[in-house]
Amino acid sequence: MRPSDLLQPRPQGLYCPPGDFFIDPVKPVGRALITHGHADHARAGHGTVMATRETLEIMAIRYGEGFAGSRQEARLGERVAVNGVEVSFHPAGHVLGSAQIRVAQGGRCIVASGDYKRRRDPTCLGFEPIACDVFITEATFGLPVFRHPDDAGEIARLLASLGQFPERTHLVGAYSLGKAQRVIRLLRDAGYAETIYIHGALEKLCAYYESQGIALGPLAPATIDNGGKAAFAGKIVVGPPSAFADRWARRFSDPVSAFASGWMRIRQRAKQRGVELPLILSDHSDWDELVATIADTGASEVWVTHGREEALVRWCEINGIAARPLHLVGYEDEGD
């Protein structure tokens, strides 16, 4: 059996013919295995969804309890048969509940990474390299220009700016699932104990992270009733990046706009968005992590998906690993 008989791209997503399931399908399907809760990977309307408990709960928060016909909880590391195909979920280190999915049959095994990162993240389990024949890797930051600096250094720059401009509100753009909670947790780890104000879009997910034992410290809604414009002077406000271009942001005094994203490595990106304080904090692997992970899995073949496939394929060529881009459609980088 060729690997492409076990998993293959279809317009709806990555399909397993013998198991009759999709991984992270972008359209409603009968059976979906979902790596994590970001909207471009986890969509509502499938017949059965198999995912980690956290991912299922996050989907319920985002789409309502009826997001799928039925749910099947995947316990990390446990091998389960789905129509005769052996399936297991393993931590991906991307956001809370995120997993890689290992699919095996007839002595052949493929690991679909979903989105992943390698560095320590206090808000989720760390990535575990899984030995496999074929590794399907994401490539969001699949160019040698993307090398994320140390998280603590980025948070230190935010706190330094707060010290330097104590009269200005520091608005931190961070996507609402994963990034926002990680920024808040990193701030706490850096010793910042004051109330952090959050946009309404973050409330439920922050509460959920708290319920899963990830302490975020004192949070309060960033609403005007909380004391008017002056109340936010010198405070940190976290919200989805789209809100900062919106009229919502006018309630803050002379804001410093910060944005926590791997894209902030590129100056022009920061400039275009009007970001004054770029924070290079990513939920995805950087170039060095991507190539290290390919080596760690020992895969003899690599399929590259969503992102900049060509550079990673080139790297594999140079290093004698068979590689090809997997042209899947419909994935944006919500997580970053």
Partner: peptide, 8 residues
């Protein structure tokens, strides 16, 4: 879009 105070 403007910058700073005018970013919204």
């Amino acid at each position: 879009r403007g910058h700073g105070k005018r970013s919204s």
